[in-house]
């Protein structure tokens, strides 16, 4: 596997820009916190994944994106798509 094109910090920045500040306490380990607990709903994720797709020139599979409920899972989806 190549080095990931999207890191957790980049993902959190995109989420902040496209869906606003997280409701969760910043600084904690958020990789395995569900998006819903971070205050990001399905609409926020649609907006964020749309932006990821544009910024990184990726076509993300809708169903796979929906299945990702934590940042770690979404990062895996994005980076695996980029590897292909």
């Amino acid at each position: 596997m190549q080095s990931p094109i999207l890191t957790i910090d980049q993902l959190l920045r995109i989420l902040r820009e496209s869906a606003g500040e997280s409701d969760a306490v910043p600084g904690g380990d958020v990789l395995d916190t569900e998006f819903a607990d971070l205050g990001y709903d399905s609409l926020a994720l649609l907006e964020a994944t749309g932006r990821i797709g544009r910024e990184y020139g990726l076509r993300l599979d809708d169903d796979v994106v929906v299945a990702a409920v934590t940042p770690r899972q979404l990062l895996a989806v994005v980076n695996e798509t980029a590897d292909r």
Partner: peptide
Amino acid sequence: LPGRLLPQ
């Protein structure tokens, strides 16, 4: 307003 409401 909460940050979550601003982008939308």
